[in-house]
Design a protein around this nucleic acid. Sequence first.
DNA 1: TAGATTGTTAATCGATTAACAATC
DNA 2: TAGATTGTTAATCGATTAACAATC
Lengths: 211, 211
Amino acid sequence: MAKNSGISLPVVRRLPRYYSNLEELMREGILRISSGELAKRMKLTASQIRQDLNNFGGFGQQGYGYNVTDLYNEIGHILGVDRKLKVILIGVGNIGKAIATQVNFSKRGCELIGLFDIADELVGQEVAGIKVRKMTELSDFCKTNEPEIAILCIPKSQAYGVAKMLISSGVTSFWNFSHFDLNVYFDDIIVENVHLGDSLMTLKYRTNNKG
Amino acid sequence: MAKNSGISLPVVRRLPRYYSNLEELMREGILRISSGELAKRMKLTASQIRQDLNNFGGFGQQGYGYNVTDLYNEIGHILGVDRKLKVILIGVGNIGKAIATQVNFSKRGCELIGLFDIADELVGQEVAGIKVRKMTELSDFCKTNEPEIAILCIPKSQAYGVAKMLISSGVTSFWNFSHFDLNVYFDDIIVENVHLGDSLMTLKYRTNNKG
DNA sequence: TAGATTGTTAATCGATTAACAATC
DNA sequence: TAGATTGTTAATCGATTAACAATC
């Protein structure tokens, strides 16, 4: 887990929430908001919001609060929605297909440029307007197109080999839907895990043990 | 966010990881493991592992470590894999379909008993061996079958209404794939959020700002 | 000017890590 | 018995919350 520019991970994880709440405020036509009001909407504390934002700069104004549109744009800039990163997706099964078609990549400053699968019956098909390629083309594709982010929607058993290859081709970041702990085996990569099974079990534990 | 039996959320979130790592150790035929060795495999500290486990009881033995199979069974029991909860899924779109077919519910102590969608062309179809029902049947279905957990794979705009209805029908827990903050509007429910867009943006920020 | 609300420093809280006596 | 490793208490670290002077 490489450290990121001194901003703590809990703060970084809240940035997208700020962004989408501000987008909503804009849609509602609200022009200014105080940390207190925003806190109420997001179930945070006013203190926390001011602390979070002041990691990046003083976006507010004493006695007034924050200009909604300005803050939205600032956070968008911090999140880099204006700076496109190239993304590839490996494993076009149920989850892979859903991710490819459902996630709005371009809205989030990403560009999905390639899909890969081992299954012959998938290769050549179009998903989300992109042709599925053979796994054997992956290495060359990376050398030519230099994607920064790879989405892994492959079984645990294949994750190590695929990740190793991608890392040696220059991929630094993984959106990991496989149930394999990349961080344990590779240093200096950035991993965002979406472990659905773990998430469900956590929910189940909390349900069984609710106070 | 209802508090759960005094165990902190970070600990609860690690339980599924312990569980799957122990499963792997069993497959490898390893009979005993020390907190130090397990820490290395999971990129945790030995201290943390011992602290975590001692929230639930003294499962180890001084000078020896932990019996892999026993610990696996203990954690399985803590996670309640032997106690089935009934689950319904609302919204059989790309993500919903992928969840229904891909997630191994029964292995995790869950039973998927109903699928619901508003789209006429989906109603009546079978997904993961379960017939998709009309949304209009949802309320009656809940009263009859009493599901504890609902999976929301619906648009943000519909989440409030659907959740409200489910809560009044006795559902307490939500696996929330919609981009709507249930916790802000409802108290005394348990929510596990999977916000894919936020996860991707977090990854992207960290990639742009890697040190 | 008076009121509101920020930016920022200080206090608190909780989680992780370290240390070590207990004990298998 | 000697060595290893736990269970548990104490120390540290980091994140959240509170307080308040600065200022719009």
